[in-house]
Design a binder for these strands. Structure first.
Lengths: 116, 116
DNA sequence: TTGACATACAACCAGATGGTTGTATGTTTG
DNA sequence: CAAACATACAACCATCTGGTTGTATGTCAA
């Protein structure tokens, strides 16, 4: 296990965990469709503002959502690239199924455009 | 919320939760590459047999892994279709981003070939 | 300036999760 | 048959999770 693999696994943990809650998936859908303030989001659910705020924080830590401050509001929007990075993890699994272990490096390099 | 949507959300909860653990993702990779008995899998990890067996059970309940009995062994293999169904959930999110809400029905019908 | 609004975060709690050990049951083998 | 092996599952435990309320801080409007 290299350190980068460890980081990838940490990232995968955070991403899948963030997606493993229906309220968070619903929030993500809304903010992918367009910016919403945290309180606008909170108004949609039958739970406290603080609970919704924590869900947004989980999505934000996973990189699925970003926020920008506008006056007293925090506007959240969905990060499409993070969603795509989850898709690429699943593609890696599919490639394992096909036995194409040797090509995983290329796949990672393509979906993970760091230097080198 | 229709009942079917509820069931889809339950399924999504189970799938993403199953994937939100690195040991389970690793097990899934192995069994996607080929059948393995539970004890063969357990030998690969620094935890008890029972712990690995529970991880396999979580994957199985989510539909990501199936088992067949052969003598005293239980051979586990990865279910590619379940992996693909997760991919299609992510595609739905991408389609929300593009604002194509109206086409989600087609997408679901395609990836979810039930009658009607 | 004062009050209402929007956010953030700490502290707390019940229940779920991921691990453990122990026990029971079925299967192969000597 | 008896012993070893493979699995399954219950009971237990520490930690994490998803919710709550309460408090603090900053921003807008009258």
């Amino acid at each position: 296990m290299t350190e980068r693999d460890e980081q990838n696994e940490d990232r995968a943990d955070a991403l899948f965990h963030a997606l493993a809650d229906r309220t968070r998936r619903d929030i993500l859908r809304r903010v992918l469709a367009g910016e919403h303030s945290v309180s606008a989001l909170a108004a949609s659910y039958d739970m406290s503002f603080a609970a919704v705020q924590k869900h947004v924080a989980v999505l934000e830590r996973a990189g699925l959502v970003s926020k920008r401050r506008v006056g007293r509001e925090a506007l959240a929007s969905g990060e499409l690239e993070a969603v795509r990075s989850v898709s690429s993890m699943l593609l890696e699994l599919e490639s394992v199924w096909r036995g194409r272990i040797a090509r995983i490096d290329e796949l990672l390099a393509e979906s993970h455009p760091t230097k080198e």
